[in-house]
């Protein structure tokens, strides 16, 4: 074969190999041969303090003011992170305990009704018993939002019917409350 036909053939064959599709860079969670543990995403050396650490700590220790937006955010985060076990109403009858996971306590038991919001934030941050920590998955501000929503769930179960507006009572069916 002549050199040019070899070159042409090589060109055509190489167009099948897409070099640009696998560029020499690491995408997140790609394996790496550079490090002994094979991870491209290395954890920070021991003792490292993240730049946003003070802000996160502040968010964790100061309770945000109650607002409808906070409750809404809390409802969404609660649905994502807590509902599989604690269920929508907070009784602890989620789908996962139904498959053999230890039964979580109901949020409506007097001990937890009496607990303050910071306690819920603590449970989310550090876990409790067999429940793992959610610190990696739930941002500090969202932990307060979830705590606020759990408060709302608790209140919903115990609020006296006459505390509701007429319209709300009508919507709930009847008005004689229970």
């Amino acid at each position: 074969m002549r050199p040019w036909s070899v070159a042409l053939l090589a060109g055509v064959l190489l167009s099948g190999c897409n070099e640009m599709g696998r560029q020499p860079r690491y995408d997140s969670s790609e394996p790496s041969r550079l490090f002994a543990d094979g991870k491209s995403l290395q954890s920070a050396p021991e003792g490292t303090v993240a730049q946003d650490a003070p802000a996160r700590l502040a968010a964790l220790t100061t309770r945000p003011p109650m607002s409808a937006a906070l409750l809404q955010r809390g409802q969404e985060r609660y649905a994502i992170n807590c509902v599989p076990c604690h269920d929508l109403a907070g009784d602890g009858h989620g789908t996962v305990p139904a498959r053999g996971f230890p039964q979580p306590p109901s949020f409506h038991e007097p001990r937890l009704v009496a607990a303050n919001s910071a306690y819920f934030v603590d449970v989310i941050t550090y876990g409790h018993g067999v429940m793992y920590s959610y610190a990696a998955r739930v941002e500090p501000a969202d932990r307060w939002a979830i705590a606020a929503y759990v408060r709302a769930l608790q209140l919903a179960r115990r609020a006296p019917a006459d505390a509701l507006s007429n319209a709300d009572r009508q919507a709930l069916g009847g008005g004689n409350g229970s």
Binding site: V96, F101, P102, V130
Partner: peptide, 18 residues
Amino acid sequence: DRATFPPTHTCMTCHSQI
């Protein structure tokens, strides 16, 4: 930009018990 894959810790949230 990434959806990210769950870390093993996430699986173990449940599979430490079931």
